[in-house]
Design a protein around this nucleic acid. Structure first.
Lengths: 351, 351
DNA sequence: GCAAGCTTTGCACACGTGTGCAAAGCTCCT
DNA sequence: AGGAGCTTTGCACACGTGTGCAAAGCTTGC
């Protein structure tokens, strides 16, 4: 917080003189009142046609732009949506952000993006910062906000929408893809392929999503009477996937592996191949997410797909739900997933 | 513009009542003047220690957050940086945005992200929208702004920073990686490998970057006495790379190819292999950008690397340069590139 | 103890906009 | 022509904050 203050201090010191045209200027130039200008740019306000035209002409020649800061000051509401995300360069996150920012713009909202990568003490400070902009809602795609800050947001009329995140018993909207179902599908598929010596690969990240997928998968396998080998350390990257392959396959002769993330799966595939395993003859692999790279020729990964459009759609639903009245109800959605069959799992034995 | 207006209209209709705590509330609760509250939260203002503490206590119990909209209204300046980008899910763009948003936050600035993907009539409307937020500067990573809007930004004291973009003779900061140098390096490397039947692969996108790389490469090859075959259609994706391989290798027996983008190169590699070409024995391939996937085991792409940190650093330099006075000078940087040798080009013949 | 100098505090104005209210203008019918 | 009813316009206030200015308080040196 200290460093940040110093920074802002400096920003202010070398502030440049601005000269934006104001509604006052336009009014003077068009010979009308300032209210008329305001109404011209306020949808639904009462202005006559020729007044509107006169104002618009003046505005055009002067280069007038409404000052949204001032506008929002009145309504105590901006069209800003705060977005908290980290690791924006990971394929899945990138796609998520791409779709979300596009959808927001299409609906007349803007995206205030804060990168949580360097948020050592959690994302609470980031959310606090976002609140200072009087945003319309906050979308959290990374980190786990303590319920105290969520409550504060809600108390101020700002919805908090958690995407593939969880906050135990806090009043937040929660949109999650069906990790349990997906893990189940993956387990089922591997078992049907006749796999018996089974492994799970996760990273060291302790996100709810990772844990749910790993645990649910392990349970399924155990129910079937087998004992899965688990890998869970490192970052959630391709490289970790390779390490997992070396670590796991060096000591265990596995014939089926579930990677909780496609990125891990791709690394794992390359690692396994590097150790001489043939896919899927010797070893079947299933991923989760369906990122674009999974369809690339060297991989053709069989994986559990999250529907990106469902995800974005649900976020928008939550944002547009009214804060008070009967629409206040929280959104709690578990989005369905589906298996995408490609080429990394052996065909089912009995069909 | 029409649709957007309707949208905003609707946003206003279902506006929810808010109840943010104001500085006035805090002042009353602490028994001091409102100015004192303001000064407590203004770095560098004159407040005594115990006054500050009293205010901070009251602010904490009441849950006060400075309203940045109001604050910015005074200074006519926010800490917002407008960012225009499209195709955020492409690896290179994603990394760029990741680094930029991180750097901005670290320096006490926030990122107002507009996705230009659906900007059919150019990005001028987007920049106009951004201006309404009285941003500190605008970073353009996609689309090409006409110089009229750039001039308007500059007239209002808002810098426009083009990243790997170009606006002919407009007053914008321009930060470009050395496409010409990179193309030269790529050509040189292929020639040294003994390639003689050479191709260039671009997409149908007519961005300055693409064109510069393609043209410069072709020139180098022609200077060496050969005539390159050119592919340039489709989107800038992996799939286009594959198509290019099929299209080009079906009719020409090439032994060296330069892809103006790594993503194209990866698709091209897979396409070429699918047609039975051995890399690099039969065919050498060089890319441009050095995205993470290029280092993956099936590819090990030799490519021309843009330094992401240089790029981000230069953007920050431009943002922080003063608008008036001696610091007003525009930033025009051409960032150096370097060849990353991996495994898709044959060793040099004469060394 | 007192004056000079410094620090701290409150008042009041400014920033650019939206909007309720009442006055003014217009339309239309009798 | 005149009045009822509707539309349009301007005034003035509100939004929450930063800050110049002067008054008040404090410190220091003699």
């Amino acid at each position: 917080m200290e460093a940040s203050s110093d920074r802002e201090d400096q920003l202010k010191r070398d502030r440049a003189p601005r000269n934006f045209v104001t509604a006052e200027d336009v009014a003077r130039h068009a010979g009308v009142s300032r209210s008329a200008v305001s109404r011209t740019f306020t949808p639904g306000a009462s202005v006559s046609a020729d007044m509107r035209q006169r104002v618009q002409e003046a505005a055009k020649t002067l280069g007038y732009r409404v000052n949204r800061l001032a506008r929002s000051l009145i309504s105590d509401q901006s069209n800003l949506i705060g977005v908290v995300g980290a690791n924006l360069s990971l394929p899945f996150m990138a796609r998520q952000l791409d779709e979300l920012s596009r959808a927001l713009l299409r609906r007349g909202m803007q995206c205030l993006l804060l990168n949580a990568a360097e948020a050592e003490q959690g994302i609470t400070p980031l959310i606090e910062l976002i609140l200072e902009f009087r945003v319309r809602a906050i979308v959290v795609m990374s980190g786990s906000p303590p319920s105290s800050i969520i409550d504060e947001c809600m108390a101020n009329g700002v919805r908090v929408i958690l995407v593939n995140r969880q906050a135990d018993d806090a009043e937040a909207d929660t949109i999650i893809s069906d990790d349990l179902g997906g893990a189940h599908i993956a387990a089922e598929r591997l078992l049907r392929a006749g796999c018996r010596r089974i492994g799970v690969v996760g990273s060291g990240a302790r996100t709810p999503t990772q844990i749910r997928r790993r645990v649910a998968f392990a349970e399924c396998i155990e129910e079937a009477g087998f004992k899965p080998v688990v890998w869970s350390s490192g970052e959630t990257t391709y490289e970790t996937g390779m390490e997992a392959a070396e670590g796991l396959l060096g000591s265990h002769d596995l014939d089926g592996v579930f990677c909780v993330t496609d990125l891990l799966a791709l690394g794992f595939l390359d690692g396994a191949r590097g150790m001489g395993r043939r896919i899927p003859e010797d070893l079947s692999v299933v991923g989760f997410d369906d990122i674009p790279q999974s369809a690339w020729a060297p991989y053709r990964l069989t994986t559990v797909r999250q529907s990106m459009s469902d995800l974005t759609g649900s976020v928008l639903t939550a944002i547009e739900r009214e804060m008070h009245g009967e629409g206040m109800a929280l959104v709690h959605e578990v989005l369905p997933v589906e298996l995408v069959e490609r080429a990394t799992v052996r065909p089912s034995i009995r069909s």
